[in-house]
Write a protein that binds this DNA or RNA. Structure first.
Length: 219
DNA sequence: CTCCCGATAT
DNA sequence: ATATCAGGAG
């Protein structure tokens, strides 16, 4: 995508949503790490539903360890991959206590040493909890980047590095939320709603659905 | 590369 | 019935 189009692309998303935020609910950095770790291959809505009760009683790594793996499973059994997630979250909590004084480190490499935390989760935490200009490439951003031509790559890391190069200063902090929200609600995986997309004219995606789903023939 | 895995939309 | 959902680890 041309540099001028990239600027226009972001400018429109920014005008449409000046203050984009995470839809994952968390009261502190620890809860954020847990919520994002739980969100792999699951919807934000599903994660929030499970963490509502969980986060009322668990606000620290110590409380998570006290709850235990079996107790945690009871809270998150409605989320996919819950067995490995429960194990990871307990282990992650223990490691925060043992190696980081019970605090969430404001460092991507340190975050990535936590069980169940990879580059994408670490990037989310750095951006949301610590205000870092990171580009957390999840399934939505990977799709939007490749589809639109904004940032193409065969792997999430490749797309992340391209976004880092292509994204101008004024948009770097919120780029990841603009892109994820656009992917979630407009540039959907199955049925992208191009007819109401505000950046459709800048997009490389060809099989655009030209019009909204056919309402029954109008009178 | 495979496995992990429930809820929801299509 | 199947694709998809804020991925990560072996």
């Amino acid at each position: 995508m041309k540099k001028s189009d990239v600027i226009e692309f972001y400018a429109r998303l920014a005008a449409d949503n000046p203050h984009p935020e995470t839809e994952l609910k968390a009261g502190n950095p620890f809860q954020l790490v847990v919520a994002v770790a739980l969100s792999a291959q699951a919807t934000d809505i599903g994660v929030n539903k499970a963490t509502r009760a969980l986060f009322e009683e668990v606000k620290t790594p110590e409380q998570m360890v006290a709850l235990g793996e079996a107790g945690l499973k009871q809270h998150i059994k409605t989320i996919g991959l819950f067995n490995t997630k429960a194990k990871n979250v307990i282990a992650l909590s223990e490691k925060l206590i043992a190696d980081f004084g019970g605090e969430v480190p404001a460092d991507r490499d340190a975050l990535e040493t936590l069980p169940g935390v990879g580059r994408k989760t670490a990037n989310v935490v750095m951006n949301v909890a610590f205000g870092a200009e990171t580009f957390a490439v999840d399934t939505h951003i990977f799709r939007v980047g490749n589809r639109t031509g904004l940032a193409r790559g065969k792997t999430p890391l490749a797309v992340e590095l391209k976004l880092d190069k292509a994204t101008p200063a004024p948009f770097r902090l919120h780029a990841h939320h603009w892109l994820i929200l656009h992917g979630r609600y407009v540039c959907k995986a199955r049925k992208p709603e191009c007819w109401r997309c505000i950046v459709a004219d800048l997009c490389a995606y060809k099989p655009k659905t030209p019009a909204p789903p056919s309402r029954a023939n109008a009178a």
